[in-house]
Design a protein around this nucleic acid. Structure first.
Lengths: 208, 208, 208, 208
DNA sequence: TATGAATGAGTTTTCATTCAT
DNA sequence: CATGAATGAAAACTCATTCAT
């Protein structure tokens, strides 16, 4: 059973990663619903039943993926904040974020997870919680880039959400319009980031 | 049979709309895969088999929805372009777009469709084609707002895609972070739109 | 309704033939179960519902075909019996019978009908009755070829059944072994027919 | 999955036989199309889904039956050839063959399989291949009975096919005319077999 | 006569999950 | 730990037949 304490926690963790990697591959290829446990077990090199030693059910697999994805965002933010000029780093490194979000496999996975979240309360809960953590980290990073943003919480929230929406939306663009001009979009992205990070909180762009 | 010319095109069209409305409701509530044809038929007030007189299969229903959605965008763009000051209208009416995209039912539907497109070539094809049409319309509208944008096609493409990504992303935000501050986000959205529409094509924000 | 007396019997009969021809084509191509009434109605150039004016149901169509097929056999026998040398005609004309039975479309239809008869009592009844009539006619013809065969009813019955089995079996051969040597089979067929028709009723080939 | 090598081949084989026996019973009673998987699973004493562990689909079941049937013929031929006087054995044992072919259940099954083969390329392929093997075996047996038959391949092919057609046709007779005189038919069968096996290859019965 | 919209039962097949070994 | 046989509910889709027009 999943709740039994594993004899060997290390091996346990390795198995879980093995399953997650296999499942990610299957979900990207076929979607969450169409990827059968049999398929995943084959990709993971173990029996169907054995997967149930490590994950309570199929949903638990996707929940674990959501958490891993959020952790990636947190790590990225931590990395950016260690930069001497955080604002410049945010604008500069935007190409990496775009590349990651618009990579076909990653984009498909993102959308897959969202679709499942839209109908499974369990997954939605995990996703919301993960997003909450990631957003908080992002706000800290934005403040590190421009301390003036800390002055108005609503302004900060708005800009953070907008940036999040932007990156989420890139995954959709990659799916629907895969031949878009990457250089052109990158330029627009940098312009937008600069605006959102530099613009003084007061002025006609602020909260009325 | 679906391909037979209907005796009464009017009634036919009404039936199709009736089915699409019922299906939209079911898909939003339960997702494309989980919504059964039996459920849809009950919601539409007709028998299962009868739906197959109007749509070749379940996929054809979602394809019809994609086309209807794209038409909405096109109509919206046409409306905006009829405005005396297109640029101001674009910035001003951004609240309507945000409201529509972040409405729960609409957002769920958007994500549902995307998830299906990610694995069904037929739906993806319809979606890409619809997007192509909508994007072209959107470019015309941006040029109407600021003719200088027409000078650099890559810049125009980048900005159009960015705006599209932004609105697509709003649907995701609505799902994942439903309690975000709407006023704050609206302010950030207006600032971004102003920047992308006003900024001169030449300068450090253009295509390098 | 089918039982209503038709206003115009001629036109009625023409319609029935039209439907039977269309149905035969569909059954050969797709089998009785797979050929839908919609398909048949399209092939016949009339609406589904209209077919039900002429045939009570789908089974009635196949029953009409069985009767038509038996009539063909009867006609053929009558033709042969009008020949001056019936025995020689039977041996000689065996090639026509073989050609007809081994023609792909005809063979498929024969097997199709049999398969339906095997599971539908109604069709089986029609088929048995039709066969009874055809067999009686065939016996008359064999006696016309060799009057000595009339002496032993069991011998006559055995030989008639054997010839019937042989021709029925040709349809199966055509399906299962379509590349068989037609000349070789024809020679064997003639040899067999000669033996069965000429051999004296008494002797070691008779009923023990 | 069907393609996975079973852990326990013995048990696996037993299950397959169990399913085939149940399916044969159902197909005979109701026909291939009308016998539902639910019915078969009930007759086999296992769940519907479980049948799919052993057979890819419904068609695969009938294909396995075709192969088993062909093997029976091959075994029968081998048995006959081990006889000291093969020709006499062939003529003598004809009653067993007739009894088998005209048994109601067997006849229904034969016709059922043929009807499916007529429309399913997969089944037809299996059937043709099985028939090829069985026919080859039969030719060897005929040559063992009368070595002179080996001299003319077309004559041999013709006679083999005729005998095959004859036995195939018996199944049809049993269905359509179940009350035929068995003794009378047996006598005619023996006469025919003797003629086809003894007759010298040269003469007016050979290939012209 | 003639149409074809409408019905809904019935079919094959898939799949998450369990559990004896 | 590890396996994979076994379950059975549920889904998409088809089709003969009816009947209002």
């Amino acid at each position: 059973m999943t709740d039994a304490a594993p004899r060997n926690p290390e091996r346990n963790e390795q198995r879980r990663r093995q399953i997650l990697a296999a499942a990610a591959e299957c979900f990207q290829r076929r979607g969450f619903h169409s990827a059968s446990m049999a398929e995943i077990s084959k990709a993971a090199g173990m029996s169907v039943g054995h997967i149930y030693h490590y994950f309570e059910n199929k949903e638990a697999i996707i929940r674990a993926m959501v958490e891993a994805k959020a952790q990636e965002v947190v790590d990225k933010m931590d990395e950016l904040r260690r930069h001497p000029d955080v604002l410049a780093a945010l604008v500069e490194k935007v190409d990496e974020g775009m590349a990651k979000q618009t990579e076909r496999a990653s984009a498909a996975m993102t959308i897959e997870v969202l679709a499942e979240a839209a109908r499974s309360p369990g997954i939605l809960g995990t996703l919301c919680e993960s997003d909450r953590v990631a957003m908080a980290k992002m706000k800290e990073t934005l403040i590190a880039a421009n301390p003036a943003l800390a002055a108005d919480p609503r302004l900060l929230d708005g800009r953070t959400n907008l940036i999040a929406a932007l990156f989420d939306g890139l995954a959709i663009r990659a799916l629907v319009n895969p031949d878009f001009d990457r250089e052109g979009l990158l330029a627009a992205l940098r312009l937008t980031m600069q605006t959102l990070l530099r613009e003084p909180p007061a002025g006609n762009g602020g909260t009325r």
